[in-house]
Design a binder for these strands. Structure first.
Lengths: 224, 224
DNA sequence: ACCCCCATGATACGCCTGTACCATAATGGT
DNA sequence: ACCATTATGGTACAGGCGTATCATGGGGGT
């Protein structure tokens, strides 16, 4: 095989361009040409490495999903061994808030795609509803396991639904600039205070990089 | 003036076409030509009555906003004189749930536009954040007035934020088919039960037309 | 009865989109 | 050393988009 290039690196470079365009100009501005220009490659290369636009978008969403899962795992690992129920639930939901650059990018692109999927049938094949549904089931199971720490009369399944709806609502509030990441976290802690009475909020729980919500936030871009 | 046509009716007809296209195929499928075809008029007429696409979209959003406010006012009026605090808050938030056809249409188009406005600067001039911000302030004020009915230790401002975030999260859950309108209403009632302890849910509060969530719901279409 | 102007039709223009096609340097296996 | 194959560039094509332009029928004010 002659002149063999690093396909993974090339693909990452192109996807980085895509995400930068999406973050800056919105998902509708993501075209083959704009991605190529932003990534510093020719249009032909985007075709070569991703065949067509649908596959390109799918790869981008897959990458975002993987990054998000990784951040979530990091957050859980950072809790140390045997974290309390509230800390675990808090870590889970903190990832649902677009607090820093990469997270904001993820939520922007993901939300845009989910909205498109509402009417686009083949995009809907993506896990836009399966993912959240599974998350809600898992959360309900976790709450059921910890039910003796919950407020009296609380129903784990409904509490799981309430938590996820709240987190999502807060997330879009932050995304639209209606709410700062800090205030969203406050509301979330307020909610957890009432869900887990007697369990205080962990001390320095806040992640770094909480800034005033601004448009056109930082890009994550590089490397897989 | 020769051959004078009813501009208002023509504009309503065209906007009806736009909303039908948006509901069926998504906001990205709304073009001058598709709207004209759906409304049964020529492309030129859409130009004639709305000048350009930006103004057309603005008119559509204005109409949706007006319709939504009207439904909200109806819901409040249907409560009869001197409604309890919980009934009033419930009526306010019920409108945030896409339960029937027109409401679903509104939320679909509104959410799509709001997501576009995240990166499109001149669309952002629309009241996508001003509206919700005012709503939250009003709700906070109402809760402050009714603070003696609230759960002990509740903070009205935070409760207002929590309510709206929850309602929005539930709304998008319904929109995406993740949740049925009925289950969203249940979660909302569950929340209100805890916010207003001792105040029961009003009897036949449910609006007509609660159906299983499906894609491509009914259109509202006609009349201003 | 005239005529101006509102309301509408048809069509053209330039741009951007995704995709397809043709060419060609460079290089690893033989 | 050759040659087939990978990786890349350039460009063409058909279609859809928003917008602009030209044409014209038909009914009210005078």
């Amino acid at each position: 095989m002659p002149r063999t290039a690093d396909h993974d690196q090339r693909r990452a470079q192109i996807l980085g361009g895509l995400l930068r365009v999406a973050a800056r100009d919105g998902l509708h501005a993501v075209t083959m040409r704009s991605v190529a220009a932003e990534a510093g490659v020719s249009l032909r290369l985007v075709q070569y490495y991703f065949t067509n636009k649908a596959l390109l978008m799918r790869a981008a969403l897959d990458r975002l999903d993987a990054e998000s899962r990784a951040r979530w795992a990091d957050r859980l690992a950072a809790l140390g061994p045997a974290p309390g129920p509230r800390a675990r639930v808090g870590a889970l939901l903190a990832e649902a808030l677009p607090t820093d650059g990469p997270s904001r990018l993820f939520h922007l692109v993901w939300t845009s795609s989910a909205v498109l999927a509402l009417t686009d049938p083949d995009l809907a094949a993506q896990a836009f509803t399966a993912g959240p549904a599974r998350l809600e089931r898992d959360l309900a199971a976790a709450l059921t396991a910890d039910r003796d720490h919950l407020a009296p009369g609380a129903d784990p399944a409904t509490e799981a639904a309430r938590l996820l709806a709240l987190a999502h609502g807060l997330g879009t509030g932050v995304l639209s600039g209606l709410r700062t990441p800090a205030s969203a976290r406050e509301v979330l802690d307020y909610h957890l205070d009432r869900l887990f009475p007697g369990l205080p909020a962990p001390a320095t729980d806040a992640a770094p990089g909480d800034t005033e919500a601004t448009h056109g936030a930082g890009t994550s871009a590089e490397a897989t």
